[in-house]
């Protein structure tokens, strides 16, 4: 693999993702961890771009970085505005986390070992194609229509449920 600007950017994003991921799990301050998670998610979005998934990359930033993580921060700020907010880690959590992490690593190693040939999308010279239109067509033209609708209904149910739970009691 020859050394191009693209390779450099790819490794930059990879380093960003891994380094900030390590910070997320090691730092004890919850807001610092959340901010670090933002960098991780942003780095993952960058890696999506290298997988030719332009739509997914943008959606990743909109949904995870711009939506979910802001809500997490919002929750943290609502519950505790203090700077000395610390995460308490118990031994059980540590053990469970290690088990999950090792299992995931094994799974990924198995996939890496069983893949006959690796091809770097960024370097094979083909023009990247926009994916938005094909994703839209696949979702709405039948093939993935049912899963899409099921997910939509699920989200709607969650939305209504959240609104119901957070609702104030109406006095009679």
């Amino acid at each position: 693999m020859e050394f191009t600007l693209k390779t450099l950017i790819f490794y930059g994003f990879a380093l960003l993702t891994v380094a900030s991921g390590i910070v997320v799990v090691t730092v004890r301050n919850i807001v610092h961890a959340a901010f670090s998670l933002m960098v991780t998610l942003f780095g993952v979005a960058g890696l999506y771009v290298f997988l030719q998934a332009d739509f997914l990359a943008a959606t990743q930033v909109i949904v995870y970085v711009g939506g979910i993580l802001v809500l997490i921060l919002f929750g943290v700020m609502m519950t505790s505005g203090r700077l000395e907010m610390r995460i308490h880690i118990e031994r059980g959590q540590l053990l469970l986390g290690a088990v999950v992490a090792i299992a995931l690593l094994m799974l990924l190693l198995a996939v890496i070992a069983n893949t006959p040939q690796w091809k770097n999308v960024a370097d094979d010279g083909t023009q990247l194609q926009p994916t938005t239109e094909s994703i839209g067509t696949l979702i709405l033209n039948g093939q993935f229509l049912l899963p899409f609708e099921v997910v939509s209904v699920l989200l709607l149910v969650a939305l209504i449920g959240a609104a119901l739970i957070s609702r104030k009691e109406v006095r009679e």
């Binding site: 050394f3 191009t4 600007l5 693209k6 332009d54 990359a57 010279g125 023009q127 990247l128 194609q129």
Partner: peptide, 17 residues
């Protein structure tokens, strides 16, 4: 371009063509 830093394709925008 093969040996250059700015090889052909290196600047084709990663966010699609």
């Amino acid at each position: 371009g093969k040996t250059m830093f700015f090889a052909e394709g290196a600047l084709s925008n990663p966010l699609g063509p």
